[in-house]
Design a protein around this nucleic acid. Structure first.
Lengths: 169, 169
DNA sequence: CCAAAACCCATGTAATCCCATATAGGCCCA
DNA sequence: TGGGCCTATATGGGATTACATGGGTTTTGG
């Protein structure tokens, strides 16, 4: 298992903890944090969605690479660093596989009682379940409209229901 | 943990002390500026922002390298040397993980009751929280405007499997 | 001798660990 | 093939620890 796939909805408990889906944890075990503390999640607010982006080491490297391309001590670099690094949180995963999302992150995604974990391959997102459903609906519609452009070949013939949504509750 | 990541806001007490975030201290434990003071912080006023730049040995080295790159006895080098070295302070961290910022530094950043510690990877900055929020807003906006450029650049990094084209956020 | 800095200890809050439990899904065996 | 067992996973809650912060005390330096 080396990619984040499928969607799971888990509950935030009284202490603010949420279980990371086991299959995501499996991915993070390989891609998780480097030497030392295994299991850290690299997490930051999505730039243009009310959601959180998260992933392991490879996601962190992506951002590092982005900044390494900029000259040291340029105005630009500092500004970008602030936006990219300043909002990032390294979230430890406890031994039961749970995380606690900082207030700033919860606020950005509007998280309150439940979190939808959405696998996106090399990273995953965390959504307020209702908002995600709404977003998903629009995405499906968009795909539908453009289907002919993609061509028949790319349609894997399985219906829209990806078989998830109700991992719990 | 080997990089300064994320943002924390701590309070300045009656004696002018502030706690350095624990995770930053962890980085400094390995990278601290050990010139007599183990775990000391290399700190100076940011050149182009009302903030303070701080870090450990690697930051000090980066600055040295920057100056080494300039021709000896050039005006530019002298100017930069003064600007960078002139205001550098080596700040000791007490055994509870707190520092006291010299008046000159506090003045430059406009610090008074609280300090926002902003991780920027190899270094971190200290801001007056309100000013930082303002700066962060601008930085986000800038990233947003340029995001397609970044998107293109970072694609190969995480997209070794191709796919997930639809995983747009 | 005074002021400022460094040191040491105390405390409340928040995060972390650890254990318990339920529920779901897979597996084995009849 | 169906049913029951077994394991993995999510979740709840109590106990423990870490951390930021406040305040008193000692040291240092002018």
């Amino acid at each position: 298992m080396d990619r984040f796939v499928s969607t799971f909805t888990n509950k935030i408990d009284a202490k603010g903890r949420v279980s990371v889906p086991a299959s995501f944890r499996a991915v993070l075990e390989r891609d998780g944090y480097t030497s030392g503390i295994p299991g850290g999640i690299y997490c930051y607010p999505s730039l243009d969605a009310p959601a959180l982006d998260a992933g392991g080491q490879s996601l962190a490297k992506t951002i590092d690479r982005l900044l390494d391309g900029l000259p040291d001590y340029s105005d630009e670099r500092d500004e970008l660093s602030v936006a990219l690094y300043g909002d990032v949180h390294i979230i430890p995963v406890d031994q039961d596989g749970r995380i606690v999302l900082p207030e700033a992150l919860r606020a950005h995604a509007g998280l309150c009682t439940h979190v939808a974990f959405v696998g996106l391959g090399t990273k995953f997102q965390m959504w307020e379940p209702a908002r995600f459903e709404e977003r998903r609906g629009r995405a499906r519609e968009k795909v539908h409209r453009h289907r002919q452009l993609f061509g028949a070949g790319s349609r894997p013939a399985q219906g829209d229901r990806g078989g998830e949504g109700g991992a719990r509750e």
